[in-house]
Write a protein that binds this DNA or RNA. Structure first.
Length: 441
DNA sequence: TCTGGGGTCCTAGGACCC
DNA sequence: TCTGGGGTCCTAGGACCC
């Protein structure tokens, strides 16, 4: 038995973050892309969501709409890829497997980054450990990563940013017991501090706070008033006071969202039903995979964010209508992970939300009230049917896992439709689909 | 006309993250 | 013409309770 009151060994936090993750994944499987500008596009080929260093140098911005850079892309011979989440997800789990070798305490923070808790040691030793992490990830996955080490998560983020930016391409920076700490904070503009977004940084700038160093020196009460406890925590973290502990990712997820922008506007209720059915199927699969059940299902549907041209009778006036956005929530009564039950609720919600004469550009479902499905309350009636349904679901999942998505599917939906996203330039799913593995000649 | 005080729970919306 | 998807946390305000 461990004595729970024993003195805690002093520990530090490392943040490991892949460089240009999606673009780097593409490079692992196509080395011809090395040294060339590469961009990866969002779903529907709408926005640029990843850029290689060369593409950044051309001035292509993060989140920039693709049509705005199309000419530049052509001129500069930039490689363009549609997003391939199946490939990136698989590469992500390989990355995390390597990181786990270095510490039992880790938090997978996003698809391409993780925090590791490390035992504190001499600054030189920590730096060496960081370099070893970087090198092993490279050897075992082919991915380039940067490592930042510090006393708190927020400072580890600062360290990681600076490591990425360093011209010497060291890609490892240790700020624990570092005489460089203050200078590092001075070189970190306020908007780059983790937790300070566009809104707050504009406000802070108007008060003359331009750097992380100045923010660290701000008065506690003032920060609390202006930015609530969230802002105060960030300031404390910059002062090496740990406020944010490592979380267990997925320990208790609160919601699941499945949503897509449509390839073309959707006007009819049949097409909207088809799309929502598709999202609901994906959502139910996510639930079962994570062993969760949902107590409520919401759907939302909206027009484009930027303008909206009404059609037919609604557009007769010729005036542009306001962008429309609506949502409907259905209480499921008892938590469920059954595609059939969720589908019923979703269709009910579609009927409630649909309005003719609106060109929907995006829709989605949100599952909430999540709880482990093993703890789901027992049904008082219909127990036999419910058990039967669960059995059916697990068989369908097994078949689809083996033979591909939607080999067997529930209900009425067509898997084709104008609402499907465009993905014109997707690379092969090299690691997860047999027909797409690499062939060597 | 006058009209307490304190608590909980829920939801919508804002801000942030990658 | 063409602008992603999936999450979290916090707060304010209303409904409701005693």
């Amino acid at each position: 038995m461990q004595n729970r009151l024993e003195v805690k060994v002093s520990r530090v936090i490392a943040l490991i973050d892949a460089n240009n993750f999606y673009a780097s994944c593409e490079r692992v499987f196509d080395p011809r892309l090395v040294g060339r500008p590469v961009v990866v596009l969002s779903n529907n080929d709408g926005c640029v969501i990843a850029r290689s260093a060369e593409a950044k140098e051309l001035g292509i911005g993060m989140g920039e709409p693709f049509f705005k850079v199309r000419d530049l892309v052509k001129e500069q011979n930039v490689v363009v890829r549609s997003s391939n989440y199946e490939l990136y997800g698989d590469m992500s789990s390989r990355l995390m497997d390597v990181l786990e070798q270095f510490s039992p305490d880790s938090e997978v923070y996003s698809i391409d980054e993780a925090f590791l808790e490390l035992e504190k040691s001499a600054p030189g030793e920590l730096r060496k450990l960081g370099a070893e992490i970087r090198d092993r990830v490279r050897r075992q996955t082919g991915l380039p990563v940067s490592v930042g080490i510090a006393e708190t998560k927020t400072l580890a983020k600062v360290a990681n940013h600076l490591a990425k930016r360093s011209r010497r391409a060291e890609s490892v920076l240790n700020l624990v017991e570092s005489s460089y700490l203050d200078l590092a904070l001075e070189r970190t503009p306020i908007e780059e501090v983790w937790g300070v977004g566009r809104r707050q940084s504009a406000r802070l700038r108007s008060y003359g706070i331009l750097t992380a160093l100045q923010f660290r020196a701000a008065d506690d009460d003032w920060v609390r008033r202006k930015m609530t406890v969230t802002g105060l925590r960030t300031v404390h973290e910059l002062r090496q006071i740990r406020c944010l502990e490592l979380g267990q990712s997925h320990a208790h997820q609160h919601s699941i969202i499945v949503s897509r922008s449509f390839g073309e506007a959707v006007w009819s209720i049949e097409e909207l039903r088809a799309a929502i059915s598709h999202f609901t199927t994906r959502g139910a699969e996510k639930l079962r995979k994570r062993r969760l059940a949902a107590a409520a299902l919401s759907i939302f549907a909206r027009t484009g964010r930027y303008k909206f041209q009404p059609s037919g009778q609604a557009g007769r006036s010729g005036q542009a209508a306001e962008p429309f956005s609506g949502s409907v929530t259905v209480d499921l009564g008892l938590a469920t992970d059954s595609t059939l039950e969720l589908m019923q609720a979703a269709q009910q919600a579609v009927s409630a939300i649909y309005q003719p004469g609106i060109g929907y550009r995006k829709a989605g479902i949100i599952l909430t009230g999540l709880a482990p499905s093993d703890n789901a309350p027992l049904r008082l009636w219909d127990t036999a049917r419910y058990e039967h349904e669960r059995e059916l679901m697990s068989r369908i999942d097994a078949i689809n896992a083996r033979h591909g998505q939607d080999t067997v599917r529930c209900g009425i939906f067509q898997s084709e439709g104008r609402w499907l996203a465009r993905l014109d330039q997707r690379s092969n799913r090299f690691t997860t689909r047999w027909p797409e593995v690499m062939t060597l000649r």
